[in-house]
Design a protein around this nucleic acid. Structure first.
Length: 512
RNA sequence: CGGGCUGUGGCGCAGUUUGGUUAGCGCGCUGCGUUCGGGACGCAGAGGUCCCCGGUUCAAAUCCGGGCAGCCCGACCA
């Protein structure tokens, strides 16, 4: 097996909305954890995570390991997604799948192996991907006559079939999606963010007109991607279109969702492409229109991957580990038995069953032979949104302790109101995480007038600069400082109808 | 592909310059006991081809030669 490789893209756009719904006052006392709560043990510092401010990449790797999200695979650049990480993926998958279907696309599955000749049919496409391709040259004990490529994306195979299935305008639009793994050999792998093999969803559609294809690409961008990221992952994203340089190989236009991570860098979280008639012409996707004239179809393709897990880690995580919105958390609530005591066990079990009956994902932590502190740290690392601590001391007064992960606030609540308090808190978490992430981005975004200012601002966050001020050599100058244009949008953050609009703004920054 | 660095129990490391016989430490792991409302402690244990091959030597984790792997920087990056 010989190989080469490819690449991927990132993005950065607008965000808005952060709403907080009515929340009810929590009963009783609330307090922030004091240093004594966390640093009490002399060894506390030892097993703790490297602070984000000290070394963000290291912090990221530690969170991935300690929250048991993933491990590195035996082949460089590959990853093993562990149960806790995979459960988050399953929830993201469900949210995306539901929206994709609502947009009218149907799931199907195409082969992992693609004839090398297919890749070569679209010039820009091959050129873009060839450096990242994994190519099978031997199989069945002998050299293959035609090398087989492990799909880096499926435009070629899928379009070869769409060509076969589309004859008439009545067959359009054809809206397909597939859940699959793809391979793009990476020189600089980073778990979830950039691995040689990853899981994703790729949509491929064919339409009768350019306008319809564009509308669909935008519908996916907004109603599938932006919605999942904002409403489910609680990560505000900027949406806009890519510059020619950052465009998908073979596309006429690439739309992106860019989120800001905790270190001010941008992560491209999902892209939707207008393919024009490039692939239709390469693969012969033609149809007879109502007048009986042969026409080439207009197409789109769009994808979002396990990279989103990385986005959630980096957009929400803090120095104590992962912080998950309830919508994605494998467990929304953990009821921790502080001590093994009959009353404690009974009340804890009762809370678990009541919350479970209400439809929440809850687990009882009855490992009382393991230290309480250790268990607290463990659930905190894993990002479980709400923890209920049930112990004899509180119970004697008819209370339990409710700990909110993202704020690390502890509240003592009456046993009788515990379920209500948990449900209320769960309802607030997502909004608060979203608002916090948005506030962070806004606080790290600055409007500038010159490329030099953009370079400076790009070191710590995003800079917005008029496309006109960026100039023809702007991207080159930014590139020299590892800064790229994440996306182009209108001054108000809206999507541009045309690339040549006068007042377009470029959002620039460093990226993953 | 260019430059620098590193390979020692599961993880992180010391030891290598000045070869020396039982290869250490922290974390983690197992057992017992005391603990256990924020990463507990004591005692007792388990766990290692010191990256590989070859050479030098009475003796190699340590010295020499070659190889492999990984990391960082750069380049490159749907």
């Amino acid at each position: 097996m010989a190989l080469h490789s490819i690449r991927s893209e990132p993005a950065a756009p607008t965000a808005r909305r952060s709403g907080t719904e009515g929340r009810q006052a929590l009963l009783v006392t609330c307090r922030a954890m004091t240093p004594a709560d966390t640093a009490a043990a002399p060894a506390a510092r030892k097993g703790a995570l490297t602070p984000r401010a000290e070394d963000f990449p290291r912090w990221y790797q530690e969170v991935v390991a300690r929250a048991e999200l993933a491990d590195n695979g035996p082949v460089r650049g590959t990853m093993v997604i562990r149960p806790w990480g995979y459960a988050i993926w399953e929830r993201l998958q469900a949210a995306l799948d539901e929206r994709i279907k609502a947009a009218g696309a149907e799931n199907a599955y195409f082969p992992l192996f693609i004839p090398e000749s297919y890749l070569k049919l679209e010039a820009e496409h091959v050129e873009g991907f060839s450096p990242e391709l994994a190519v099978v040259t031997h199989a069945g004990g002998r050299q293959l006559d035609e090398p087989v490529i492990v799909r880096p994306t499926s435009e070629t195979v899928i379009n070869s079939f769409i060509a076969k299935w589309v004859q008439s305008y009545r067959d359009l639009p054809l809206l397909l999606n597939q859940w699959a793994n793809v391979v793009r050999w990476e020189l600089r792998p980073r778990v979830f963010l950039r691995t040689s093999e990853f899981l994703w969803q790729e949509g491929h559609t064919a339409h009768a007109t350019e306008a319809e294809a564009r509308d669909y690409a935008l519908e996916i961008l907004a109603d599938v991607y932006r919605s999942t990221m904002l409403d489910v992952a609680c990560v505000p994203v900027l949406t806009g279109h890519k510059t020619t340089r950052e465009r998908f190989a073979g596309a006429t236009r690439t739309w992106t969702c860019e989120g800001m991570m905790g270190d001010g860098k941008s992560l491209q979280m999902g892209t939707s492409h207008e393919l024009g008639q490039n692939f239709a012409k390469a693969f012969g996707i033609q149809f007879s229109d109502a007048q009986g004239t042969q026409q080439y179809a207009w197409q789109t393709s769009w994808g979002a991957s396990t990279r989103l897990i990385g986005a959630i880690i980096m957009a929400h995580g803090d120095d104590f580990g992962l912080r998950l919105p309830p919508s994605l958390a494998p467990l929304e609530v953990v009821v921790v038995m502080v001590k093994d005591d009959d009353d404690v066990r009974r009340e804890a079990a009762h809370l678990v069953s009541t919350l479970t009956e209400l439809g929440h994902r809850v687990r009882l932590d009855d490992r009382t032979d393991t230290g309480f502190g250790r268990r607290s740290v463990e659930w905190e690392l894993k990002g479980v949104p709400v923890r209920v601590e049930v112990g004899p001391r509180d119970l004697a007064e008819g209370n339990v302790t409710l700990v909110t992960r993202h704020t690390r606030q502890k509240a003592t609540v009456p046993l009788s109101g515990a379920v209500g308090a948990v449900v209320t808190t769960l309802g607030d978490v997502g909004h608060e995480l979203r608002a916090e992430a948005l506030e962070f981005r806004l606080g790290h975004t600055v409007a500038v007038a010159t490329v030099d200012e953009a370079i400076e601002a790009g070191e710590t966050g995003f800079a917005t600069i008029a496309l006109a001020a960026l100039g023809d050599d702007g991207e080159d100058r930014l590139g020299a400082h590892a800064i790229t244009v994440r996306c182009l949008q209108r001054p108000d953050g809206g999507l541009a109808e045309h690339d040549d609009e006068d007042d377009l703004v470029a959002v620039v920054g460093r990226s993953y």
